[in-house]
Design a binder for these strands. Structure first.
Lengths: 245, 245
DNA sequence: TGTGGTCAAGTGGCCCAGCCACCGGACCAT
DNA sequence: ATGGTCCGGTGGCTGGGCCACTTGACCACA
């Protein structure tokens, strides 16, 4: 099952981007070891050679350090952070912005999407269904879906905008490394994405916009709930160091 | 002849260093194609995978450009060092994206703007009137107006998005350094901005959105005219996606 | 007790052989 | 000339394999 993401981007680049994204999200905090090359290859569904190439590009960027025979480590305290001094917008602002902008993007995509782009969207939904148990895969698939949607508008600038929105997200998640994710939540995301994709396929802009609004409103709601919960149980300082499989 | 791999240094690094050396020595002048990966592998006495890794590291450094199916080329005009390798969207795409997004932003600003933000907008228009003769000032004032409008939504993420849009614009203008600006055009921009600011002050979202749409449609039109003009004086017209040979 | 040695599992380093998609130029037909 | 087809060359990527190194558990032996 080749990954076959967006389109004509070198594979190692895609992998590097996703890895960088995961690191930025706090999934792999600084200093931690990330999965072995073989594991990464398996989980990304690509060959080890491609993963190695991605690692090398990350190494070049100073994001990651390779120790032979031991593993690959996220570089401690690097300049990867923004030189942006101020706090920046909060998660709810971002979600509100996404609702406004991506709603229009969805509508435009419904107007302009070409058949192969619609297929790509549907494939993304399928992949999300398949990877419902894999947090990292889900995460990157989510991002891909929204990028694919932007691409479906046929407007490269919109693509860049959506990319920028996700970079904002990455920064946020780095700041408040909080991810309350349940499988239940993931399945609703699948349904939301499917609804959007279907509306695009039906070339129905209004429905696409509405579906996107519903999607992001739901995410906002869930996020609010999560914040409330953690705020309530703040007294217990125990960090359940959530580790993979 | 094969290089000595006794060093504990990673192989791809050694290869990359040697290739960089050859390029620096003028063995492979800028713009030339260097030997195929298979040949390089053979001549270095290493595997193609290692050569590929080296190439990737050189690519990261911007020393080299890879064109699939064609070959690996020494980067022509360095110094640019753009991390974004692809060509990126064109000016019309950007304008279309801005129309879509900034239209919504204007509408939201009309809803949310606080009095001091409205004042800031009006002041920006005033400044534009004053600096009508100063190209550079006009330019930065234009940008400020749109940023102020985004700020007036009260949503920091939207601000960042608009900032991103103007960064896209900056890149574009770098590529096609063509700015046909007349004072007549500047005055229309003033009127457009004033109309937007007034709509925001009147707290009328629909009018604000419409005013922004009119503004950017006009800019698009002017830009199209400019392109046609310059295209007439040159032989080729279509995409300015030039490749200097 | 603790010191040093052995060993196996796990990891990155590197290679091989092969298939694919893509590009570009030669070649041919219209 | 124009447009289509074909084919060789090129990078992209795979999957399997072997090696050197690191680590930690385990086991003597003092």
């Amino acid at each position: 099952m080749p990954l076959q993401l967006v389109e004509p981007k070198r594979l190692y680049r895609q992998i590097a981007d996703q890895l960088a994204q995961l690191i930025a999200n706090g999934e792999f905090p600084a200093g931690t070891r990330l999965p072995a090359e073989r594991e990464l290859a398996a989980s990304f569904g690509v060959s080890r050679a491609s993963v190695r190439e991605a690692i090398i590009s990350l190494e070049m960027s100073g994001l990651v350090e390779v120790r032979v025979g031991t593993g690959i480590f996220v570089t401690q305290e690097e300049a990867g952070a923004r030189p942006r001094g101020d706090a920046g917008p909060g998660p709810f602002e971002l979600l509100a912005a996404r609702k406004l902008l991506e709603g229009e993007i969805a509508a435009l995509a419904a107007r302009n999407a070409r058949p192969h782009q619609v297929e790509a969207l549907q494939r993304s939904v399928k992949r999300l269904e398949r990877d419902v148990d894999d947090f990292a895969a889900r995460e990157s698939e989510d991002r891909d879906f929204h990028l694919l949607l932007a691409k479906a508008t046929g407007n490269g600038s919109l693509e860049l905008v959506v990319e920028g929105l996700w970079n904002q997200r990455a920064e946020l998640w780095g700041r408040l490394q909080r991810h309350f994710h349940t499988n239940d939540l993931a399945e609703r995301t699948i349904r939301d994405h499917a609804a959007i994709a279907d509306a695009v396929e039906a070339k129905n802009p209004e429905r696409a916009r509405a579906a996107m609004h519903r999607h992001l409103s739901r995410v906002t709601r869930e996020f609010q709930r999560g914040v409330d919960q953690t705020a309530a149980s703040k007294s217990t300082g125990g960090k359940p160091n959530h580790r993979r499989t």
